[in-house]
Amino acid sequence: MYSQGLIGAKTETNEDEAFLAAFQARIDAEEKIEPNDPMPEGYRRTLIRQIGQHAHSEIVGMLPEGNWITRAPSLRRKAALLAKVQDEGGHGLYLYSAAETLGVSREQMTEELLAGKAKYSSIFNYPTLTWADIGAIGWLVDGAAIMNQIPLCRCSYGPYARAMIRVCKEESFHQRQGYEIMMTLAQGTPGQKEMAQDALNRWWWPSLMMFGPHDSDSQHGDQSMRWKIKRFTNDELRQKFVDATVPQGEYLGLTFPDPELKWNDERGAYDFGAIDWDEFWRVVKGGGPMNRERLAARRKAWDDGAWVREAALAHAEKRRARREATKLAAE
């Protein structure tokens, strides 16, 4: 799930004009770009950055939900949550693979993440405090992610688009899983309903922030749109998300934590209040409630796993050497 508006990529490029024009013509003709094709350096860098951020988001995104796997309240919910968090790991894997076609390794990307140099979706820097958060994440966070990701299935870069098709196909159960949890809570005891409302209150604004800065403040948006890495602007996607989600929340009998949220007949869309961008940037830059713990958890998994990865390589080498020796002996 979980791409977020791209943050901080440099899209400038040094190739000559004829090269850039020819490349743009391919893009405009809706031709897909494949790994070994000539491409502007800026295009490659933007993709590495965006796919990397997307992959990191999946991997870090395993943590807040993983936090509730051992506490899931029924065996059915436990199996569904475990399968969902596992899917997120899979999506990270597909995305790292897509980025690897651009000449960067998974290890390099991981090290960037662990060094705090790479970004990931800011939403995962909020804590999951109750079981209802698992419902709210599935419903809102996966819902927002789907809005972002469906257009990425048509991204101009072939491996990214193919990975996204697979991700979107697998992900169709995630949002439904979350909504079903919310519905069960909303129709449950007063305590459960309160839990659901509290989760909606806490996750609503961060979900809207997932689409990234306003179009007017987004430095790289235009170039990404021209290169068809992106198909809709941050604000367009955010509006689509609000319009789709508000009726779902009303069906649950829950209220949104935004007094300015109301249907605008003229626009045929919901108006909504101002997003707290100070909070957004604070969380992106490391000041969210869970930034430190998320990175620490990833670092610990990576460091604790180092001896396992080394052993796997050492064993593979021994196996190879033994096979060679047997072959030589047979000759």
Partner: peptide
Amino acid sequence: HCGSVHAADEVM
């Protein structure tokens, strides 16, 4: 073709 994995050897 459906994707890639990382592995030390063919069994893995």
